[in-house]
Amino acid sequence: MSAFGTVFSPEMIISRFENNSWSTPQFVTADSIPMHPGAHVLHYSSTCFEGLKAFRHNDGSIHVFRMDKNVARMAQSSELLSLPKVDPTMLAAMITDIVRRFAADVPNPPGSMYIRPTHIGTEASIGKAAAPSVSSMLYVLLSPVGDYFSGGAKPLRLLLEDSARCAPHMGMVKSGGNYASALQPIMKARAAVQADQVLFCPNGDVQETGAANFLLIDGNEIITKALDPSFLHGVTRDSILTLARDRGMKVSERQLTVDELLERAAKPDCEAALSGTAAVLTPVGTLIHDGKEHQVGTGMGGNTTNALRQALNEIQWGQASDSHGWLTKVC
C-alpha cells in the first residue's frame, strides 16, 4: 500500500491572482506548476494550505466534511500572511468541482479522498522580504487515501519539550513554515527517546504537537488549551469537542500545565489523544519528560477516545445523523 498522501488524482483545479483579480478556475494536470525561481513563496514562505476529506456513503453519494470551516481558515491564513484575499465562494466551488470530477475515485470507508487546497505567493521578486506578493496561485489537489489505522491504532509516545512549535503569532496560520520549524525537534525526539511526536510546552504551557492538537481526557472531562494565536485551531479538534458536549461531557478549554498533565495522566482512567484530519483521534500512551516516562492511564488508549473517534467517523461515513450540518453533498 502506498504511503498516506503520496498518490494523487491526475488533475487539479487552479486559479491565479494577477492584476487584482482571480482568473476563472481551470482543470490542469497535477504533475507540475509553472513558477519563476524568484517566486515570493520560494524565498519568503508566503504559503498556506488546508486539509479536509470527502467521503463515500452507502448510497454512492459523496460528501465533503466541514468544508466551510476549512475554507474560512484558509481565508484567515491568507490574510495573516498578507497573501491576496481568497474568495471563499470561489474556493468552495473549486473544492466541490474537483471532487465531483473525480468522484469515482473516492474510496469506500474507512478510506476517503484527502483534499489539499494550497495558496502560494508567485510574484517574481527577491527584493520583497518585507513586502507581500501581489500575485498568487490557488490550487486544489486530491489524494485518495486508505484506512489510517490499517495496522491498528497504536498508542503514541510524546516527548514534552519546553519550547514553542513556531512563532507565537503564527500558530493559528496553517503554513508550511510552522511544520518546517517543528521538524528538527521531532526528528531528534525520535532518535533520542523513540518518541512519535513532540508535545510543545513553552514555559510549561501544554500546546500542541508538530502536526496535531492535544486533548486530555480525565473521566468525563476533556481538557485542552483555549484558542489563541499560538497554535492551530483544528477543525477536527472543534468537531471532537462538539461531540463530547453532545455526550454530556465537560469540555474545559483552558491553560493546562505540564505539572497538571502529568498528575492527571497517572490516574488509571485517564486518556490522552491527538486530533487531526488524517487520523481523526489517535491515542497517546506515554509522555516523556525530563528523561522519565509517564504512562497515560493504562498506556493503551481508552474507551472514550475510541468512542469519540467512532462517533465522528459514523457522521463522516453517513452512518449517523449529521445533526450539526457538517457534510456538504457534492454528488
Score class of each variant (00 low, 15 high):
Gly5Met: 07
Ile13His: 04
Asn19Cys: 07
Asn19Gln: 14
Ser23His: 04
Gln26Asn: 08
Val28Ser: 00
Ala30Thr: 01
Gly38Arg: 08
His43Val: 06
Ser45Tyr: 11
Ser45Gly: 12
Glu50Trp: 14
Leu52Lys: 07
Ala54Met: 03
Arg56Ile: 13
Arg66Glu: 01
Asp68Phe: 08
Glu79Ala: 12
Leu80Asp: 06
Pro84Ile: 07
Asp87Lys: 07
Pro88Ala: 04
Ala93Gln: 15
Ala103Tyr: 10
Ala104His: 12
Gly111Ser: 00
Pro117Arg: 00
Thr118Trp: 07
His119Leu: 15
Ser125Trp: 09
Ile126Ser: 00
Leu141Ser: 04
Gly146Cys: 05
Ala153Val: 08
Leu158Phe: 03
Arg165Cys: 04
Met172Lys: 08
Lys174Arg: 07
Tyr179Met: 02
Ala182Arg: 01
Gln184Thr: 11
Pro185Asp: 08
Ile186Val: 15
Met187Asp: 06
Ala189Thr: 05
Asp196Tyr: 10
Val198Glu: 00
Val206Gln: 00
Ala211Arg: 12
Ala212Arg: 06
Leu216His: 02
Leu216Asn: 00
Glu221Pro: 04
Leu227Ser: 05
Asp228Tyr: 10
Pro229His: 00
Pro229Asp: 00
Phe231Gly: 04
Phe231Ile: 13
Leu241Ile: 09
Arg245Ala: 14
Asp246Leu: 11
Lys250His: 12
Glu253Val: 05
Leu256Trp: 03
Leu262Met: 05
Lys267Leu: 15
Ser275Asp: 10
Thr277Trp: 11
Ala279Asp: 04
Val280Phe: 10
Val284Cys: 08
Asn303Lys: 15
Leu308Cys: 01
Arg309Glu: 01
Asn313His: 14
Ser321Lys: 13
Cys331Thr: 13
